[in-house]
Write a protein that binds this DNA or RNA. Structure first.
Lengths: 150, 150
DNA sequence: TCAAGAAAAAGAATGGTTCTAATTTTGTGC
DNA sequence: GCACAAAATTAGAACCATTCTTTTTCTTGA
């Protein structure tokens, strides 16, 4: 652990072959500071930093960042896509059936694929994605049921 | 194990509190005979059996069947929902990154939740859904690459 | 046989996401 | 420092799976 400074956001972007624009720097920082944000929330965060950015630019930027592995796209069934900046540790997710909130769970193994199927039927498996379904602390307390499935 | 006949499709529908209509019988049988069919494919199968059925009726019927647990809805990120008739054994799925094909994998445990998170952060987890990502046998052979990610 | 309620029909609407085409900006080489 | 090519951004429309609304038809239990 000597003095190799952690790279700036701009350097990280350049490092994966992306051009550095104010919008993309803000995009990456917004995703990293946020907690599983959706596209609209990310767009708001980016606009707070750099003024007007179109929604399409956000989609395009997120696509680029996800393709290079700087962010990860999570798409829980039944809700729009969300993004997180925690990548590379192959962690998994807890999803609340009631309110849809999303939380991280560490993967015991830490690298993909952390599970191997007994019979993978000829597939070349490179990742095992796990979603734990349940109720979050807020929704599982019987008192004050604020959110409910219809 | 005496001679208790397996129930007819109609009896199964009635058993979960649903009304028996030609469309729903055909719907359930189509899903069961098919292999992870999409909504359009299911609609085609139903129409082959009972003539005209609207797409909305198929959506409505699938929703009802899924709510009662007679069918299971699978929603792999990036592709439209598909349905399967194999329920109750908590099996998982292999998804091909290239062509999107879906295959079943037996769960070693067999009942949900088959995995427990190390730290479930207060969530009451009732199911662990696993998706194995990889390439199917057809797409992983280097020769004749028919399908490719853009 | 009848009434109540569930299911189906038709049609429109919704919403997240992607595509197209034109314009601007960035990084690089001269 | 300038110009050029590639990449990023924009605006706007298009897309497609899914859902909603309303009306009509059918199943079921009385």
């Amino acid at each position: 652990m000597t003095a190799s400074q952690s790279p700036t956001t701009a350097e990280e972007l350049r490092g994966v072959g992306l051009r550095v624009t104010a919008a993309r720097v803000a995009l990456l920082e917004t995703v990293r500071r946020g907690d599983h944000l959706g596209v609209e929330a990310i767009a708001s965060g980016v606009r707070e930093r750099v003024g007007h950015v179109s929604l399409q630019a956000v989609y395009e930027g997120l696509h680029a960042l996800a393709a290079t592995g700087l962010v990860r796209r999570i798409e829980p069934p039944g809700s729009p896509a969300r993004f997180e900046g925690r990548v590379g540790d192959n962690h998994h997710h807890l999803v609340c059936r009631s309110c849809g909130v999303l939380a991280d769970v560490d993967c015991a193994v830490g690298h993909a694929p952390c599970l191997t199927a007994s019979d993978h039927r000829g597939f070349a498996v490179d990742e095992a994605e796990v979603i734990y379904w349940g109720l979050c602390p807020d929704c599982s307390t019987p008192a004050v049921p604020e959110h409910r499935d219809h």
